[in-house]
């Protein structure tokens, strides 16, 4: 997708960003400024200012109904924001469709698994690579003109990605028939196949047992280190969030009530209040 240089907007980092120090000199991969959305008379998200470093692992937490998934839907343009701006790698995503935003470098998984269940594992990953595969209709019909090469390249890359998560052996299985944990992993592989700059994970540990969660944490770290991309995750499992996130945002009633490192968040009285309620007066 061609973006004219004039569309590129750079805004200064908000002072309240949670970008880790080593990322400070780099432009954030994702920024939002005063982002908000109303559904009818209800304000679901308001005054959201985020800045996520290019290789940061960032957690988005908050009580149920705080608007976390709505934030993901805003960032991927599933919802058009009522107010504010989103800059993805410095480009404004306003008015773009979901597939265009995907091409700009954002990928996500879903709270409830949304794989293409009737397709094979391999085809699911290849769907993720849709925009990197350049075969014309003619060449795919005649199977000539570089079609085989392009197909082979896509196949190899998909296999490599699956290998990275130890799933290459499952590539001919139907996605819908995989066990739950493998389906969750495949969703991440499929999202990574779109070649994103930032990966959004919506409750990646939901329904997982402690050993699977530990493996997931390891995988998230490996994704960041190997692919050098940012990861933003919504999660209720505090061990996971506190264990791997460098920065955490806490959302309540659609607004950010706290930002900081895991230790700062743990000690923040507003966060404790949002999760546990107010201390009773003695």
């Amino acid at each position: 997708m061609a973006v004219k240089p004039s569309e590129r907007i750079m805004v200064p980092l908000p002072s309240h960003s949670i970008v880790p120090i080593e990322d400070m000199h780099k432009a954030p991969v994702l920024q939002t400024h005063q982002l908000g959305i109303d559904f009818g008379g209800l304000t679901a998200v308001n005054n959201l200012n985020l800045a996520i470093g290019p290789t940061e692992i960032c957690g988005l937490i908050g009580p149920n109904g705080a608007g976390k998934t709505t934030v993901f839907n805003l960032l991927t343009n599933v919802y058009q924001p009522t107010r504010g701006t989103i800059l993805l790698d410095g480009y404004d995503t306003k008015g773009k469709s979901c597939d265009q935003v995907s091409k700009m470098g954002i990928a996500r998984t879903f709270q409830n698994i949304r794989l293409f269940g009737k397709m094979t594992v391999m085809d699911n990953v290849k769907i993720g690579m849709h925009n990197q595969l350049h075969t014309s209709l003619l060449s795919s019909v005649t199977h000539g003109f570089g079609y085989k090469q392009a197909e082979k390249k896509a196949y190899d890359k998909a296999k490599e990605l699956l290998d990275f998560f130890g799933m290459a052996d499952l590539r001919h299985h139907q996605a819908g028939s995989l066990p739950y944990g493998a389906q969750r992993r495949l969703e991440i592989v499929r999202a990574l196949a779109t070649n994103p700059k930032i990966l959004l994970l919506d409750e990646p540990a939901a329904g997982m047992n402690p050993s699977e969660t530990a493996e997931l944490m390891e995988n998230i770290r490996r994704i960041r280190d190997e692919f050098q991309i940012a990861v933003m995750l919504i999660e209720h499992d505090m061990n996971l969030v506190m264990g791997i996130c460098e920065g955490i945002c806490v959302l309540n009633y659609g607004e950010i009530i706290a930002k900081g490192t895991p230790d700062e968040i743990k000690a923040n009285p507003k966060v404790i209040e949002a999760y546990l309620g107010k201390k009773a007066d003695k």
């Binding site: 469709s97 979901c98 597939d99 995907s102 293409f116 397709m119």
Partner: peptide, 16 residues
């Protein structure tokens, strides 16, 4: 096939 199975997910994978 992807769009027919899950339009929103396909769109987020970059399919127009």
């Amino acid at each position: 096939r992807a769009v027919s199975e899950d339009r929103a997910a396909a769109e987020l994978m970059g399919i127009s």
